[in-house]
Design a binder for these strands. Sequence first.
DNA 1: CTCCGGATTCGT
DNA 2: CGAATCCGGAGT
Length: 199
Amino acid sequence: MTRPEPAAAGPGALPRRKLPRSFYEQDTLTAAPALLGKLLVHRVGRTERVGRIVEVEAYLGPHDLAAHSSRGRTARTAIMFGPPGHAYVYMIYGLHFCMNVVTEPEGHAAAVLLRALEPVANIEGRTSGPALLCKALAIDKGLNGHDLLSDDLYIADAPPLPPRAIARRPRIGVAYAGHYWARRLLRFYERGNLHVSRA
DNA sequence: CTCCGGATTCGT
DNA sequence: CGAATCCGGAGT
């Protein structure tokens, strides 16, 4: 047949194709659910760790009181104000890292937090939870600001999930942002997926 | 400079 | 439910 078939890949596997810059430049409310099902790839040397994104949260911009950018442009949040398609990685509670992808045109400080992955290749340990995900894929602050159109850290395309397969819930751990922003349905996950951090 | 608390996780 | 453990952001 004409379609290339990766030898070690399972049935239905598709060739890996990086998401283009235009994907990240989209409206965050569009990009966040569209990231579900896509493949996060981190390559270190010959080891390529891959996970399928199954849970995300949208952080809309400085007006979103749960977003780090709501405190304004600082050394830490500068990446969020920068061009789309870059990784925003920060340390949390002094011991963990969380990874976001920067969305929307430069100057609009929005991002999507990656909360859970389904293991695909070379994954050790759990991937359900934003910090566990980073640990399993060896993602730390050294990757803050990294271009997601690079060859060692990127997201590969995959067919979008049908709308009915996507659940919308309030974000986790943002009660400090007040009722409005804490209650908004900005967490998206694949319904029924066992790797989601919290149903 | 000091102080407070966090987009978490794990063990009790 | 509290500890772990560091740093960003705010206030003095």
